[in-house]
Design a protein around this nucleic acid. Structure first.
Length: 799
DNA sequence: GCGGACTGCTTACCT
DNA sequence: ACAGGTAAGCAGTCCGCG
């Protein structure tokens, strides 16, 4: 028996000799794989006398008829009630869905659909990135003695490929890989088959040797984490296809295997045995989606530039093959290729610490956490906590139930209609973590919901829509959420104390971030139709209380003599008017003294000026627009929400002009300046002086280009490009320009790369003017002033 | 035959 | 594939208009 220490990295399982062996990947000085025997099982809520019936179940599994191996009674908390149920064991993890599926026809089944590696982590109370002290015998773990947080560093390689693309997009069956760049341990190289005079270039005799060299390097460097950018969809499959074409095994795994692509939700993930493949592209998108890091475009270039603040070396994608063919330019192409590996590595350095902390927190291994959805993060932690509380983990709903849940969406938040205009001296308050604090303050949980009638109202929280929640005992979800909020508070203190640019600071930052992301996802998970802990009544109650508190606060503010301009979900915008900042703060204090539990109204800020605009409507009803405003902060910065300016599907020319108009009005209070800005831009547009990149409109194709019902400008541009050989599929963000050629806007649309000219009238009438007029209108320009009734030329004639 | 009102599809935003 | 609420563009259709 040997006592050892190592950090837990990953976990999966193998079947050997009819036994299921959990396989742990640990890192001490080196990576080691150790095994532990563990039996797969699920729970069944069947009567005491059902043993014969359970053991008698016989169903086809993967390769043969299987039955449970044994079963036993277990005392558990089942959907909020203490009772005895059956714990049913099977030989192999993949027998579980078959056997439980059969028995589910008659009795409720719990804890299904848990991947076996995770099952093991849950039952042993283990989290990735913790250091285990354990006793081992041969290749088996005998006993885990202790565990603690660990700062493990993983050998990380970034990589990227360039391909020959004379037809626009490269064709994996014909077009060669011309460069493979990578970075590991500060060594940044480009593998290529052309003699290029650069000291970082590794020259191979042909494509086959290049791929071989790359695979050897991955192996020799003992790569533990492999970072790519869109590598699941592009680099890995392309390399594999080229390896096949060259009669080469694409043996990138630690055991010499290739990679496996698995469908996860709507996207694919690529797994590599013995290494952790992290595709940063979906990760960058996910970060934006949950509001952690937001980038305006998801290209490697843009993500790198916006996340690091540095400029990336670029070449035109369509020129790559020409550069390769041109002796004078192939060195520049190598520089670019090498930069891709660097950019990928740098993005990894920003996102990986966050993934590691999120993994620790949710107990998910790095690969899983890097490819997880928000729902999986929440669910993972809840499953662990549920186990700790000896409560059965609810099963995932089947498709029929999930679809049924989707049919009745839950009523959401309240948004107050603003009165359009320009205002001075405002104060904005918002509820800190509104939904999480509502959940913890009212003990909202599927199993504290609707107690028996015999429980008096005084022992319940009653939601505005009439649902009752037991005050005691605490539900699992409020308990876990409360822990997260508390941890975040403590971690924020630690973050403040830590010196910048230290490992402590980086870790505290990543933890604060992870905790925030996670805590904010609980409400969504409760109302998510495929959630194990779905409860329509809970979800409805959270939003009902949300609407209740924001509306109550608006009433209180009005009664206290403030004019309430706007509010959305958890925020209220007040006009100070004759009142002082102190009055506002004492109002906030008063509100807080009347709020229950953890709920708190916070000062978001004071704003000397702000503007709300009119909603664009056909007809003559004029109302304010929700979710669109601009505020001038006391520090001179402008906070802009919802305007064209913050949308990627508007051209830069419209957006910068709108920004300059807002600055002229909010900062300088000058409408003359604003009008001059607009006149100048229109003049430049008319003279054809505006570069195409300022006119490009970016839109994501959210469907397969063949599956649209109607023709839109972006679809029309995409179709033209596809004809020329450009690859455009679901998810591609395309940039297009409205050109002079054609009659409808769609006909005029053309992919930016191929555009030769632009239609100034479109950019004046449909881009610049609409986006600035809605603001200028608040300065007293009347509708008629701006429209020039009867004028056929449209708005452009006004300026 | 033309413009305005309106609808449906679509995207991207706010919290 | 965590939720709902919202604005707004463009294409297409309907409707009035002697």
């Amino acid at each position: 028996m040997v006592r050892k220490k190592a950090t837990l990295i990953d976990v999966d399982y193998r079947i050997k000799g009819g036994k299921t062996l959990v396989r742990l990947l640990l890192k001490g000085r080196h990576l080691v794989r150790l095994y532990d025997e563990y039996e797969p099982y699920f729970y069944l809520d069947a009567p005491k006398g059902a043993e014969k019936e359970i053991m008698g179940a016989k169903v086809p599994s993967r390769d043969r008829q299987v039955s449970p191996t044994r079963c036993e009674r277990a005392a558990m908390s089942v959907l909020g009630k203490e009772k005895e149920i059956w714990k049913v064991y099977c030989e192999r993890p993949y027998d579980i869905p078959h056997v439980s599926g059969e028995l589910a026809k008659k009795y409720p089944v719990y804890e299904n659909g848990i991947p076996f590696g995770r099952r093991y982590l849950i039952d042993k109370g283990l989290a990735p990135f913790t250091e285990l002290t354990y006793e081992r015998e041969g290749r088996f773990i005998k006993k885990i003695i202790s565990k603690r947080d660990s700062k493990v560093s993983l050998r990380t390689m970034s990589f990227d490929i360039e391909t020959y693309n004379p037809k626009g997009s490269p064709r994996p069956d014909k077009d060669e890989v011309i460069m493979i760049s990578y970075e590991i341990d500060g060594e940044r190289k480009v593998i290529t088959s052309k003699k290029i005079d650069r000291d970082f270039v590794i020259v191979c005799k042909d494509e086959r040797e290049m791929i071989k060299k790359f695979l050897e390097t991955v192996k020799e460097k003992d790569t533990e984490v492999l970072l790519g950018y869109n590598s699941t969809v592009f680099d890995l499959p392309y390399l594999k296809a080229r390896a096949d074409a060259n009669g080469l095994d694409f043996s990138i795994g630690r055991d010499g295997s290739s990679f496996r692509v698995r469908r996860q939700g709507i996207r694919d993930v690529a797994e590599i045995t013995g290494r952790i493949h992290v595709d940063l592209y979906p990760l960058v998108r996910f970060m934006g989606f949950i509001g952690a890091f937001k980038v305006s475009k998801y290209t490697l270039e843009n993500a790198y530039e916006e996340l690091t603040g540095k400029k990336k070396l670029m070449v035109g994608k369509l020129d790559i093959w020409k550069m390769w063919d041109d002796e004078n330019l192939s060195a520049a192409l190598a520089d670019y290729s090498r930069f891709d590996a660097l950019a990928t590595m740098e993005i990894g350095k920003i996102l990986l610490p966050l993934m590691v902390e999120m993994g620790r927190l949710t107990r998910l291994p790095l690969f899983d956490v890097s490819s997880a959805t928000a729902g999986q993060l929440v669910e993972s932690l809840l499953m662990h906590k549920s186990f700790e509380h000896r409560a059965v983990i609810p099963s995932k709903p089947n498709d029929a139930l999930a679809h049924e849940r989707e049919l009745g969406p839950i009523k959401g938040a309240f948004v107050k209609l603003p009165q359009p205009g320009i205002y001075e001296n405002m104060v904005v308050f918002d509820f800190r973590g509104l939904y999480p604090s509502i959940i913890t303050s009212h003990n909202i949980d599927p199993f504290t919901l609707n107690p028996p009638k015999s429980v008096p109202d005084s022992d319940c929280f009653i939601s505005p829509n009439g649902h009752r929640f037991l005050k005691k005992p605490r539900g699992l979800i409020p308990t876990v959420l409360e822990e997260l909020i508390k941890m975040r508070g403590e971690m924020k203190k630690r973050l403040k104390k830590a010196d910048k640019d230290t490992p402590e600071h980086e870790q505290a930052f990543a933890r604060v971030q992870s905790l925030k992301i996670l805590a904010n996802s609980y409400y969504g998970y409760l109302a998510y139709p495929r959630s194990r802990w779905y409860s329509r009544d809970c979800g409805e109650s959270v939003t009902a209380w949300g609407r209740h508190f924001i509306q109550e606060t608006i009433e209180k503010a009005t009664q206290s003599g403030f004019e309430v301009l706007y509010g959305d979900t958890d925020s209220i915008f007040l006009l100070l008017g004759s009142k002082t900042k102190e009055d506002a703060l004492s109002f906030m204090k008063k509100v807080n003294s009347e709020l229950p539990g953890d709920m708190e109204l916070e000062l978001e800020g004071f704003y000397p000026r702000g503007v709300f605009v009119t909603k664009k409507v056909s007809g003559d009803k004029e109302t304010g627009a929700k979710k669109k405003y601009a505020l001038l902060g006391e520090d001179g910065r402008i906070k802009i929400r919802g305007f064209e300016l913050v949308r990627r599907d508007w051209s830069a020319i419209a957006k910068t002009t709108q920004r300059r108009v807002l600055e002229a009005i909010l900062k300088h209070g000058s409408k003359e300046m604003a009008v001059k800005v607009v006149k100048d831009v229109i003049e430049r547009l008319k003279q054809g002086k505006v570069p195409l990149e300022d006119l490009t409109i970016y839109t994501q194709m959210r469907k397969d280009p063949r599956k649209y019902d109607i023709k839109s400008p972006e679809l029309s541009a995409a179709e033209k490009a596809i004809k020329m050989g450009v690859q455009i599929e679901r998810g591609t963000v395309i940039g297009y320009v409205i050109t002079k050629k054609g009659s409808t806007i769609s006909e005029k649309a053309c992919l930016a790369e191929y555009a030769q000219d632009y239609d100034p009238n479109y950019y004046i009438d449909n881009q610049v003017l609409p986006s600035v007029l809605k603001i200028l209108k608040e300065l007293g320009y009347s509708e008629d002033d701006l429209k020039f009734k009867g004028e056929q030329k449209g708005l452009s004639s006004f300026f």
